[in-house]
Amino acid sequence: MKTNFKKIATDGVITNNPTLKLVLGTCPTLALTTAAMNGIGMGAAVTFVLICSNLIISLLRKVIPNQVRIPAFVLIIATFVTIVRLALDKLLPSIYESLGLYLPLIVVNCIILARAESFASKNSPIASVADGLFMGIGFTLALTLMGAFREILGAGKIFGITLWDFKIGFFSSSAGAFFTYALFIAIFSLVAGTIKTHKKKKATVTTEPKEEVIEEKEAE
């Protein structure tokens, strides 16, 4: 079966964006988006785990007994999360420290388990890797944009570089995280809804003459 990479890519980044459309992985989204760099760090870690776990689960999909598929998925995911923790601690200690508690919590991130169960366990390894990559990109983009928004308004900085002294402390707080998340979901839904309506209208306009032709033929 031919893999539709275009559909996988648009699904992961836009149509089924894990953060803004499926509202999965909300715990790190709310807690870590105080800075844009945190978004990139967390997004990269989740993307790595998604790609690797999707690949292994897809390769083993015919071997894993159906009754124990969830424990098997969790074992595989936990292994890759541990690898990410070890690698970050050794190579990028500052990011390891900033992600803190939320790094081991990737194990229970709904996005990863959901993709393992709904996609990787049913599709080829190449398609599963692509799915992991684009879902990870969608997650990273959402987290980075939210992080940048909160960092600019809450700390007057972007990627740690000071822009101005003006700060709104609310955006650095937990309440600010919920507000920002709601705002981003609203904007995303509005834009996605507008595009959908526009496409529907376009489709109706192009199909209308055809219907007239059919009616004319039937009348004849």
């Binding site: 071997v63 894993i64 007994p65 009754q67 124990v68 424990p71 098997a72 074992l75 595989i76 292994t79 541990t82 690898i83 070890l86 690698a87 601690d89 050794k90």
Partner: peptide, 29 residues
Amino acid sequence: VWFKCISFLLILSALLSGILAVLNTVLFV
């Protein structure tokens, strides 16, 4: 079925533990 399931999980755990043991040695701080 249950023998197969438990065997699979044990083999998987052993394999993954081996990988982690090697990486832990390489990446130990």
